[in-house]
Amino acid sequence: MSSNGDDVPVVRMEKIVKRFGTVVALDGVDLTVNQNEVLCLLGDNGAGKSTLIKILTGIYTPTSGRIAFYGAPVDIRTPAEARALGIETVYQDLALVNLMSIARNFFLGRELARAIGPVRWLDMRAMNERTRAALADVGIHIRSASEKVEKLSGGERQSIAIGRALHFGARLLILDEPTSALSVAETRKVLTYVTSAKERGLSVIFITHNMHHAMMVADRFTILRQGQLVGNYAEGEVTQDDLADLVMGQREV
């Protein structure tokens, strides 16, 4: 995207409104993610974080508002369209299918197939090998790609979902509460993937409840409260306590 210059934001969402019937979930929210930046999206339950992200990933359609991707206006109507732009999302509980193997999950929706004439079949061997190699490439080592996901720990599952997003050429990686159900050690590991994604030149939107995790990885913070934008703050501009107060609405900075 050098033609657009390095200062063009990856995503600029402007004046996003989303109503569900009479409920206003988002009331004119702006969100900007710059290139090669980790943006932490903070807010309490019901603040509108998930709704905002689901608009960006094509799950919801905004009631009004504009989205630009690398400066160009876009209309993201389905998750497939978001993925075609290079927006990959790792959802807290919607990441992987537990009853399926790692490789089948890794290539879900992009399965590798071989064909003789009209007869096509899955190339399981290639999918298993490429899954192993791709995950090793981002520092995730698995025992076997044909193992079912249900046998893995929560941290391993998150790692694989993130590894998948990294492998398939995401330009923007969205992590929706990736650490909320993990142990301390597993959390640390997942946070290192956030850092390594940035090192690979990606931008990351990191959604979390946990101010401590946010402080560890963020370049910038965007805070929502009750469907409205509270503000944008650069790293170093605010303390962990400031963030907590802003999220809960106890003071302004």
Binding site: L94, G109, A113
Partner: peptide
């Protein structure tokens, strides 16, 4: 052994995750 079969497993196993991957 087919893509469609993979999508059947995903649809029944975790429809949200399946949709998020474009199934």
């Amino acid at each position: 052994r087919t893509r469609y079969g993979n999508h059947i497993f995903a649809t029944g196993g975790n429809p949200g995750a399946a949709r998020a991957q474009g199934v």
